[in-house]
Amino acid sequence: MVQKQYNVTGMSCEHCAASIREEVSEVPGVSEVVVDIAAKIVTVRGTDLDDERLHAAITEAGYGVTDTAAA
């Protein structure tokens, strides 16, 4: 299993976290999405994770991805 973390801009509440979880969960290979609102970090676990698709899912949810955090 692979783990990736992303710094996300614009999220501030549980509704934000739920939107991100919903979009990112639909990306092929994703098995778990953990959103830390306070730290503004999204942790994704799964197999064959595609950074481009994960970035696109976060953007589709309405948030920005500033960079990839160290996992």
Rank of each mutant, 00 (worst) to 15 (best):
A18D: 12
M1W: 08
M1A: 10
R45T: 15
L49R: 00
V35E: 03
V2T: 14
Y6D: 00
E14L: 07
E60D: 15
E26R: 15
G10I: 07
L54P: 06
H15T: 07
E52K: 11
A57C: 02
Y6L: 05
M1N: 10
K40Y: 01
I41G: 00
Q3P: 02
V33L: 01
A69S: 10
E52A: 14
M1K: 11
A57L: 05
T47V: 14
Q3K: 14
I20A: 01
E26K: 15
S12I: 10
D48Y: 06
E60Q: 15
I20P: 01
A17R: 02
V27N: 03
S12W: 09
A57R: 05
M11E: 03
A71K: 13
E22D: 12
I58S: 08
V30Y: 05
S19F: 04
A69P: 02
E23R: 15
E26L: 13
A38P: 08
L54I: 13
I41D: 00
T9N: 11
V42N: 04
E26A: 15
A39C: 03
G62D: 11
V2S: 13
T59C: 09
I20G: 00
I58V: 15
G10N: 07
A56E: 14
G10T: 06
N7I: 07
C16G: 04
V34D: 11
P28N: 09
L54C: 04
K4E: 08
A56T: 09
I20W: 02
D50C: 06
C16I: 02
L54G: 03
E60R: 15
T43K: 13
S12N: 12
S19M: 10
V33I: 01
T9C: 08
G10F: 07
H15G: 11
V24K: 00
A61N: 13
R21W: 06
T66N: 12
K4Y: 06
R45V: 12
K4V: 10
A39F: 07
L49I: 00
R45P: 06
V8G: 03
D48S: 13
R53F: 06
V65R: 10
V27I: 03
V24R: 01
S25T: 09
D50H: 09
G62N: 12
L54W: 05
A70D: 13
T43H: 04
E32W: 04
D51H: 05
A18L: 12
D36P: 03
A70N: 11
A61M: 14
M1G: 13
D36Q: 07
S31M: 10
D50G: 05
C13F: 00
Y6G: 00
A17H: 01
A70E: 14
